[in-house]
Deep mutational scan, measured.
Amino acid sequence: GSLMYASIFGNVSAIIQRLYSGTARYHTQMLRVREFIRFHQIPNPLRQRLEEYFQHAWSYTNGIDMNAVLKGFPECLQADICLHLNRSLLQHCKPFRGATKGCLRALAMKFKTTHAPPGDTLVHAGDLLTALYFISRGSIEILRGDVVVAILGKNDIFGEPLNLYARPGKSNGDVRALTYCDLHKIHRDDLLEVLDMYPEFSDHFWSSLEITFNLRDTNMIPGSPGSTELEGGFSRQRKRKLSFRRRTDKDTEQPGEVSALGPGRAGAGPSSRGRPGGPWGESPSSGPSSPESSEDEGPGRSSSPLRLVPFSSPRPPGEPPGGEPLMEDCEKSSDTCNPLSGAFSGVSNIFSFWGDSRGRQYQELPRCPAPTPSLLNIPLSSPGRRPRGDVESRLDALQRQLNRLETRLSADMATVLQLLQRQMTLVPPAYSAVTTPGPGPTSTSPLLPVSPLPTLTLDSLSQVSQFMACEELPPGAPELPQEGPTRRLSLPGQLGALTSQPLHRHGSDPGS
C-alpha cells in the first residue's frame, strides 16, 4: 500500500510541476520586462504597450523563439521550412505564380514574418522605404497627419515599386495596425538579389506586381527641396563636378596662354591676372594647382613670374625650331616645348642647366612650328573623362623618358669634360720664339709635331656638333674642335714665318 501511495504521489506532483513550468517561465520573463521598464524609466503609455505586446506574443508563440529554433537546422532544411511557412503567400499572390521551385525557395529564405499588435506603428512618415510588405492577416491604416487616407487588409501590398527607383524613397505617411496583424516583408536588397539570379522571372514579377498603396513621397523628385535634403551631399558634389568641367572646357578654348597655377587659371584673360583667384576666387580649394602655386600668395601677385606667355621676339635665322618633346602628345598638341628640351639645344645650356634650372624654367623657349593648343594648358582630366590607368601609364612613360634624357646628358657632359682635359694635357705650358741651342744640326726643328685630335665617332658628340652648327654659343662658352686643319689655341699665330727665318745662335768662333 505504501508503494502504491508513493507512486501516485510522485506522478501527481510531476504533472503539477509540468503544468506550472510554463507559468514560471512566463513570470520570469515578465519580471525581466518590468525590470527593464523600471531601469530605463519608460513612461506609462509606452510601458503599457510593452506589457501588452509581451503578453500577446507569449500567448501567440508560447514563449518560443522561432528564429532561434529555425537557425538550429541546416540551410537546406531551413529553405523547406521557410517554404512551408510562406506557402499561403507564395501560392495566392499573383506576382509569385509561375516561378520555379528554386526561385520560390530563394524568396522564402528572404521573407521575414512580423507580428504587430493593435496601435503599433510599422512605418513612420519620413522613414526610408527599405522593404516591401505583404499583409497575411489583420488590417492596417495609413495616416497623413491625423487623416486616415487608406485601410488595407489581407493580401494587400504596400511599399514602393523598387524597379522604378535606384534609391529608396521616404514614406509619405504613417502605417498603423488596427488589429493583430501578420506581415511578410522582404528587404529591398534581398528581393533585387533574387531577381538578379532569376532574370526570366524578374520581368514577370515586375509586370504582375500591383502595389495597393504606394508609400513613396511624390514630392521626392529631382530638383525638389525634399530631394535635395535626401541627396544633399551627392547633389552638391555633382554640381561641383559639372562646374569644374564647364570651366576646364572654357580653358581649352584659349591656347595662347600657358599658366603654371593649374587648370583653373589657364583660361583667365590678361585683365584677371591681378585678381586673387581668377574664376576660382569664390572657392580657392575647388581646383588643383601645381607646386608653384604656393608662391602666388606673396605680395606682387600681378607681377609674379609664374604666369607664362609666349615671347614675341624673333628667332635667329640659324636657330632650330626646338628640341624633341618629352611626351608623344607634344608633337601634336603643344605650341611651347618643355623646359628640359631647351637644355639640349647647345653645349652652353648643358654647362648651365643644373646651376640655374629654376631660373631657366621661365626663360624664352623655342617654339614648335605648329600653332596647336598648349601642352601645359590642357586641363586636368576628371576620373569620369580619362581612366586612372591611362594617366598612370603616361606618367610612367614620361618618367622613363626623363631617365633616358638624364643618362644621355650625363654621358655627353662626361665626354666633353674628358676631351677638354685631354686638350689641356697635350698642350705645353708655354712657348717662346727663341729656342735653346741643340747639340747638333738636327735641332733646327722649332717644335715637335703635334698629332691632331682623333675624329669623334660617338653619337652623342655628333649631336653636340649638330647643335653647335645651329645654335649661337654665348661669349663665355668653350669652343669644341671642328672639322678641318686643327691648330692649338695656345700656339702663336705666325708659326709659318718662324720656319722661314734663320735661327740666331749665340757662340764663340775658336779662330777669332
Rank of each mutant, 00 (worst) to 15 (best):
Gly126Ala: 02
Gly126Thr: 01
Gly126Glu: 03
Asp127Leu: 02
Leu128Glu: 10
Leu129Asn: 04
Thr130His: 14
Ser136Leu: 04
Arg137Gln: 07
Gly138Met: 02
Gly138Trp: 03
Glu141Leu: 05
Leu143Lys: 09
Gly145Val: 03
Val147Cys: 09
Val148Phe: 01
Val148Trp: 01
Val149Lys: 03
Leu152Ser: 02
Asn155Gln: 09
Asp156Asn: 04
Ile157Leu: 07
Tyr165Glu: 12
Gly169Gln: 03
Lys170Asp: 01
Ser171Met: 02
Asn172Thr: 08
Asp174Arg: 07
Ala177Glu: 03
Leu178His: 06
Leu178Arg: 09
Tyr180Met: 05
Cys181Asp: 01
Leu183Asp: 01
Lys185Phe: 12
Asp190Met: 01
Leu191Glu: 01
Asp196Thr: 13
Asp196Phe: 08
Met197Asp: 14
Tyr198Gly: 03
Pro199Val: 03
Phe201Asn: 06
Asp203Trp: 07
Ser207Phe: 08
Ile211Asn: 03
Thr212His: 03
Phe213Asp: 01
Leu215Gln: 01
Leu215Asn: 01
Ile221Cys: 10
Gly223Glu: 08
Gly226Ser: 11
Ser227Gln: 13
Thr228Gln: 08
Glu229Thr: 06
Ser235Phe: 12
Arg236Asn: 07
Arg238Thr: 09
Arg240Glu: 12
Arg240Asp: 13
Arg240Cys: 08
Leu242Pro: 15
Phe244Trp: 12
Asp249Val: 10
Lys250His: 09
Asp251Val: 08
Thr252Tyr: 10
Gln254Asn: 14
Ala260Thr: 14
Ser271Ile: 12
Arg273Tyr: 07
Pro279Asn: 12
Ser283Thr: 15
Gly287Lys: 12
Pro288Ser: 07
Ser289Thr: 05
Ser290Phe: 15
Asp296His: 13
Asp296Leu: 07
Gly298Ala: 08
Arg301Gly: 11
Ser302Asp: 09
Ser303Val: 06
Ser312Asp: 09
Arg315Glu: 12
Glu319Asp: 12
Pro321Gly: 13
Glu324Pro: 04
Met327Arg: 14
Met327Ser: 12
Asp329Val: 11
Asp329Thr: 10
Asp329Phe: 11
Ser334Ile: 07
Pro339Ser: 11
Pro339Gly: 07
Ser341Phe: 12
Ser341Glu: 13
Ala343Met: 07
Gly346Lys: 04
Val347Asn: 05
Ser348Gln: 12
Asn349Gly: 11
Ser352Val: 02
Asp356Ser: 11
Arg360Glu: 08
Tyr362Leu: 10
Tyr362Pro: 05
Thr372Cys: 10
Leu376Val: 11
Asn377Val: 03
Ile378Lys: 15
Pro379Val: 03
Leu380Asp: 11
Arg386Thr: 05
Pro387Leu: 08
Glu392Cys: 15
Ser393Asp: 04
Arg394Cys: 06
Leu395Asn: 06
Leu398Ile: 05
Leu398Phe: 10
Arg400Thr: 05
Gln401Arg: 03
Gln401Gly: 07
Asn403Ser: 13
Asn403Ala: 04
Leu405Thr: 11
Leu405Arg: 03
Glu406Tyr: 03
Arg408Phe: 05
Leu409Pro: 04
Ser410Thr: 14
Leu417Cys: 04
Gln418Asn: 05
Gln418Ile: 03
Leu419Ala: 10
Leu419Glu: 05
Leu420Asp: 04
Gln421Lys: 05
Ser432Pro: 06
Thr435Tyr: 12
Gly438His: 12
Gly438Asn: 15
Pro439Phe: 15
Pro441Trp: 08
Thr442Ile: 13
Thr442Asp: 12
Pro449Asp: 11
Ser451His: 10
Pro452Gly: 10
Leu453His: 09
Leu453Phe: 11
Pro454Ser: 09
Ser462Arg: 13
Gln463Tyr: 13
Ser465His: 10
Glu471Asn: 06
Glu472Thr: 13
Gly476Val: 13
Gly476Lys: 08
Gly476Ser: 08
Leu480Ser: 05
Leu480Asp: 12
Leu480Cys: 09
Ala497Gly: 10
Leu498Asn: 15
Thr499Ser: 14
Ser500His: 13
Pro502Trp: 15
Gly507Ser: 08
Ser508Ile: 07
Asp509Thr: 09
Gly511His: 12
